[in-house]
């Protein structure tokens, strides 16, 4: 776990300007798997962006979250092609196996289940993404493998 990464170490990678905001947020999200609320004020001061606009940006992009995400983030593509190819079955099976609904994180903090609207790889439909790894022509039974490797 990388939660001991210092906020200052992240900030000093970027110049003290408005344009650094999103990069800094990305790095904090990567380090902590969420944006700790108390860090937002420091980021606002460093970039010179009002805190209100920092939160506006942080709540606009789905890449950022104020709630901690699981160690493994599983995204199920629900785009048109994946939907036709049975993405709903995969989603239902994943929800049943993990005991959570899409958009939630398991109590032990291991898995976050998300649905996304098309990732642009429709030829591989249906698609499931585990962290940054894409799995095409996915079958509900393949979930077992994904959930095991995430442990």
């Amino acid at each position: 776990m990388a939660t001991n990464i210092n906020l200052d170490d992240i900030l000093t990678r970027y110049p003290e300007e408005e344009a650094s905001l999103i990069e800094i947020l990305h790095d904090i999200q990567a380090a902590h798997r969420h944006l700790p609320r108390e860090t937002m004020k420091t980021v606002a001061e460093y970039t010179g962006v009002p805190l209100s606009r920092v939160t506006a940006v942080a709540t606009f992009y789905s890449a950022f979250s104020f709630e901690p995400k699981g160690e493994t983030v599983i995204k199920i593509c629900m785009g048109t092609a994946c939907h036709v190819k049975g993405a709903n079955l995969i989603k239902g099976e994943a929800e049943r196996k993990l005991g959570i609904k899409a958009g939630q994180t398991t109590k032990d903090g291991k898995f976050t289940l998300e649905v996304v609207n098309c990732v642009g790889a429709c030829a591989m439909a249906p698609l499931v993404i585990q962290n940054e790894q894409y799995y095409g022509k996915f079958k509900p039974v393949d979930l077992d493998k994904l959930l095991r490797t995430g442990e």
Binding site: P50, L51, S52, R53, T55, A56, T59, F60
Partner: peptide, 15 residues
């Protein structure tokens, strides 16, 4: 108005 003329206390949240 708040961002440009005053202190930027409010903004749009979520999408």
């Amino acid at each position: 108005v708040c961002q440009n003329l005053v202190t930027g206390a409010i903004s749009r949240i979520n999408r």
